[in-house]
Write a protein that binds this DNA or RNA. Structure first.
Length: 584
RNA sequence: GCCGUUUUAGCUUAGUGGUAAAGCAACGGUUUCGUAAACCGUAGACGCAAGUUCGAUUCUUGCAAGCGGCUCCA
């Protein structure tokens, strides 16, 4: 496996050499190996033509066949500066690297600043096991304030077969893309007329959202949560207290101003990007005693965020409505650990029920970048929050990875992240330990000793936001939703018009038991109706013809399994009800 | 938002400097069928705007949206 990384990394150098042979004035950025291949960032002196990719690829193959040797050398920074005097990005890197010397690698006429390692000879690389795939813009050092360079990506593997298999696998994965599946499943719509990134859940999507929401409500009620409804808009005052203005303002829809009135704080309103302010005000609605804590305030709150247009991605990343499975747990510092553990256990319960395991998600601990100014509150509180959160996260025994600089502006986050079929990472659920907002909102409770204290707040949203979670589940199940979530659970298919009446009786009976059923009695052949139902991914098809009418049964066809035989309707009802209740 | 790329009917695609072809879906009819596509017919489109031209869906420019990345996130 190490070798494949060396091959990929070496290919990026070979690509740089190929590019320089065609356009010697090109400035070089960085060129690492990545999960499926490699890339290199260039600053071209002229725009790249679409055909150039093939041209570079052919040149690379030629260079590989020359069997160039990769030679490593350590040189002083001074010598390096001289060597790379025409490469401003390399000079910048040399300046930042620690130590007095840097390592360079030479292959053919090309030398790059690089810590390696590489293959010894290019003959170790199969010239048919790589391909250049795409051109994209990428900011220098990943910072949008920097210049945008042109990145060329390539796939690379040890053998040609592995490359072909990978490409094929990608094509298969794309079929599971929730945007693609939506064409048949009709879960949602995003239209230019309504607006960019604004999702309409169509009837099928709405059913799934409702099922998830009901499940969350039932579960949370058992665990002592109370439900509230808070306004979708709030005055600027609230967001100044919470810090959203100014720390989060660029992700918020522009404010609404009450023009006819004198403009003061209460004449400016924002659509809420988070539910925090509302829930903090619920806490503040009356004086609180330690006896009331923990106070768990829940709401499937609809928030809107003005995400950059280029970030929008089907139902995975939208501007709204983002119905979050949100709750804020207000508790004492001593209670926080237990409450946090309960939240983690709740995740476990939800995820296990949905058939998710650690292959489907990973935990990340998002802390602040101490150098950045985009965080509210004082350092002491941040250090404390990060320290305690880390302690909690360690106790859960779930592997996690630390991400510096991605905390929320008011506190560290513990995120459950998911990957889309195409490899994009999104956070499905977020959990935060917050010492800032309760203080900012002036929340208090009277403790046993009669003294006022500030509660701690745990922000949590285990089922994330409806649309993102539905998108994730759609891809996870490849559209084959378990019966309890399936928009249509059963299709009743009469073989001919003669059986329509019996079919509608069966349909009616199922409806009485709250099974989501569709009668497919349109004038089509049986084969066609079955095909359509299968493409809609309906879990059960009940086929009724002469035999079934006669014997008072239904022939059951299970999704993906085919005909599983005839049985009396009551027996089928018992089976499906059981599956719905157990969320199988 | 930035870089690249794409845009012909609801979807998938064909094609042209003289306004366009097909399959599926839709609709109407025929057929009454045993486990993934019956048959016949009808209707429906060149993303938007400007320019070049006798004439633009086709060429040019701008804009918009989609897609792939970057940045960013529930």
């Amino acid at each position: 496996m190490e070798n494949i990384e060396q091959i990929r990394h070496s290919l990026s150098h070979i690509m740089a050499l190929a590019v320089l042979e065609f356009w010697p004035k090109t400035k070089l950025g960085m060129g690492p190996a990545i999960e499926n291949g490699f890339y290199y960032d260039f600053q071209f002196t002229k725009p790249l033509e679409p055909t150039d990719l093939k041209k570079i690829e052919a040149k690379m193959q030629e260079l590989i066949l020359q069997d160039q040797k990769f030679v490593k050398k350590n040189i002083t920074k001074l010598a390096a500066k001289k060597k790379f005097k025409d490469q401003p990005y390399k000079l910048e890197l040399i300046k930042e690297l620690p130590g007095k010397t840097v390592s360079i690698y030479t292959n053919g006429s090309f030398t790059d600043l690089c810590k390696g390692p590489h293959v010894k000879f290019t003959k170790e690389i199969n010239p048919k096991a790589f391909e250049l795939t795409k051109i994209a813009g990428a900011y220098w050092k990943g910072n949008e304030k920097n210049k945008m360079l042109t990145r060329i990506y390539g796939f690379a593997f040890a053998t040609e077969k592995e490359l072909q298999d990978y490409v094929k696998m990608q094509e298969e994965a794309e079929k599971r893309d929730h945007r693609k599946l939506n064409e048949k499943l009709n879960l949602y719509q995003i239209s230019e007329e309504i607006g960019l990134g604004l999702v309409t859940l169509l009837p099928n999507g709405a059913i799934i959202a409702d099922e998830l929401e009901n499940w969350a409500k039932e579960t949370e009620e058992k665990q002592g949560y109370v439900r509230v409804y808070t306004p979708h808009i709030a005055s600027e005052k609230a967001f100044k207290i919470s810090g959203h203005v100014p720390y989060y303002a660029e992700s918020m829809y522009p404010p609404m101003r009450m023009a006819e009135k004198k403009v003061g704080e209460n004449d400016v309103y924002y659509i809420k990007p988070m539910n925090c302010a509302g829930h903090h005000m619920v806490y503040k609605s009356k004086p609180r005693s330690y006896k009331e804590l923990p106070l768990r305030i829940a709401e499937y709150g609809a928030v809107y965020r003005f995400e950059q247009s280029g970030e929008l991605y089907g139902m995975m990343r939208v501007r709204g409505p983002i119905h979050q499975n949100d709750a804020h747990i207000f508790c004492t510092e001593e209670q926080a650990e237990e409450e946090f553990q309960k939240v983690m256990d709740l995740h476990k319960y939800y995820y296990e029920t949905l058939g998710l395991n650690e292959k489907n998600y990973f935990l990340s601990f998002a802390i602040r970048d101490p150098k950045s100014k985009k965080y509210v509150g004082d350092k002491k509180m941040w250090d404390k929050a990060e320290k305690i959160a880390l302690k909690f996260i360690k106790k859960t025994n779930i592997p996690y990875k630390v991400e510096a600089g991605s905390a929320a502006f008011y506190g560290p986050k513990i995120d459950f992240n998911i990957k889309t079929v195409t490899g994009k990472v999104f956070s499905a659920s977020t959990n935060q330990l917050d010492f800032q907002l309760p203080k900012a909102f002036g929340l208090k409770y009277i403790d046993k000793d009669g003294k006022e204290k500030i509660p701690v707040c745990i922000h949590r949203a285990p089922l994330g936001a409806h649309v993102r979670f539905i998108a994730f589940l759609t891809e996870h199940y490849a559209g084959n939703f378990p019966v309890w979530l399936a928009p249509v659970q059963v299709a009743v298919i009469p073989i001919s018009e003669k059986h329509d009446q019996y079919a509608s009786e069966i349909t009616k009976q199922l409806k009485e038991y709250n099974v989501r059923v569709e009668l497919k009695n349109e004038n089509e052949t049986l084969g066609k109706k079955i095909r359509e139902a299968e493409m809609q991914k309906i879990p059960y098809l009940l086929i009724v013809g002469d035999k079934e009418v006669e014997a008072k049964t239904v022939s059951v066809r299970e999704r993906g399994k085919g005909d599983i035989g005839a049985r009396p309707i009551n027996s089928f009802l018992d089976k499906i009800k059981q599956e719905i209740i157990s969320k199988k």
